[in-house]
Simulated assay, not measured.
Amino acid sequence: MNISAAIHDAFVLLFSGDSTLWSIIWVSFKTSILGLAMATPPAILTGYLIASHAFSGRRVAIWLVQAALSLPTVLIGLLLYLLLSRQGLLGHWQWLFSQSGIIFGQAIIALPVLTAFTLSAVQSADPRLAETAITLGAGRRQVMLTVLYEVRFGVMAALINGFGRVLSEVGCAMMVGGNIAGETRTITTAIALETSKGEFAQGIALGTVLIVLALLMNAALLLLQGDTRNAEHLQ
């Protein structure tokens, strides 16, 4: 393998507007964003409720959320495959080997990440914030929104990490999507396929996209945090 030639060919693919390459990138972005959007409302609500309410079994709930973070995505893919297959409980949905199935899988993968980060962020908030809001006559919804706004950077970190998690996973997308060209082939499944065939140019190009995206997302969060803190300091 000529590494220099593979890197050169990778950048040619990226900047030549190769339709196959950009189709793979589009499928990855589409399924990841929709999966994240599906998981975000219930995950943030669950994280907030666990963190801000005392109830029987709360420690078990926190333990389950933390444990879900370490579940291999290929295991989630296997479970979804069994559920979505023709003989499975959800087989009538006909989502196996489709983008809908991948989106469903991405949502399940993102759910514990978003929940755990939100839970941690709300737990770290000053408890007097909610108490003050209640004293001023805020309802439950207003209290929740006030607390979540206060810990917004933790929630934003949850979204960034959740997006990175679903965009970079391969096991679930491979098993549920089937790696069908133009339909369910994502960045990670394409990298795995092309590398196994000894075709490294496309893999390097797609890997470069993942690296650049990760750098941009984290840079944006850091810049936003810095700008907000500077504004608060000036006030």
Rank of each mutant, 00 (worst) to 15 (best):
residue 159 L to Y: 09
residue 16 S to A: 13
residue 110 A to Q: 04
residue 46 T to Q: 00
residue 206 L to V: 09
residue 153 F to M: 07
residue 215 L to H: 04
residue 197 K to R: 14
residue 113 V to I: 15
residue 187 I to S: 02
residue 127 P to C: 09
residue 74 V to M: 06
residue 88 G to C: 07
residue 117 F to Q: 06
residue 216 L to E: 06
residue 181 A to W: 14
residue 194 E to Y: 08
residue 57 G to F: 15
residue 182 G to Y: 12
residue 207 G to E: 03
residue 132 T to W: 02
residue 160 I to N: 08
residue 2 N to A: 02
residue 227 D to P: 07
residue 59 R to W: 12
residue 200 F to D: 00
residue 144 M to H: 01
residue 142 Q to P: 05
residue 148 L to G: 01
residue 112 P to M: 04
residue 75 L to Y: 15
residue 184 T to Y: 05
residue 112 P to Q: 04
residue 125 A to C: 11
residue 68 A to W: 12
residue 161 N to I: 14
residue 76 I to N: 02
residue 25 I to M: 11
residue 82 L to G: 05
residue 150 E to Y: 05
residue 51 A to D: 00
residue 41 P to N: 01
residue 62 I to T: 12
residue 165 R to V: 09
residue 2 N to D: 10
residue 79 L to D: 04
residue 183 E to H: 14
residue 146 T to I: 07
residue 217 M to H: 06
residue 103 I to M: 13
residue 205 A to N: 05
residue 31 T to H: 06
residue 19 S to E: 14
residue 171 G to Q: 05
residue 71 L to T: 14
residue 179 N to T: 11
residue 164 G to E: 05
residue 48 Y to A: 00
residue 32 S to Y: 09
residue 14 L to N: 01
residue 85 S to I: 12
residue 211 I to E: 01
residue 5 A to D: 02
residue 67 A to E: 09
residue 218 N to C: 12
residue 33 I to A: 11
residue 197 K to D: 01
residue 210 L to T: 10
residue 163 F to K: 04
residue 108 I to T: 03
residue 29 F to W: 13
residue 122 V to E: 00
residue 193 L to P: 02
residue 145 L to N: 04
residue 200 F to G: 00
residue 117 F to E: 04
residue 183 E to V: 14
residue 2 N to R: 07
residue 212 V to A: 11
residue 73 T to M: 09
residue 168 S to V: 10
residue 165 R to D: 05
residue 203 G to E: 01
residue 233 H to K: 15
residue 70 S to C: 12
residue 73 T to N: 06
residue 234 L to D: 13
residue 77 G to R: 02
residue 195 T to F: 04
residue 170 V to A: 08
residue 232 E to C: 12
residue 66 Q to I: 13
residue 122 V to S: 00
residue 40 T to S: 06
residue 78 L to V: 13
residue 33 I to C: 02
residue 171 G to C: 07
residue 122 V to D: 00
residue 211 I to M: 12
residue 173 A to S: 15
residue 208 T to N: 01
residue 97 F to D: 06
residue 113 V to Y: 02
residue 120 S to Y: 06
residue 191 I to M: 09
residue 65 V to C: 13
residue 233 H to G: 07
residue 220 A to R: 10
residue 128 R to E: 10
residue 112 P to D: 02
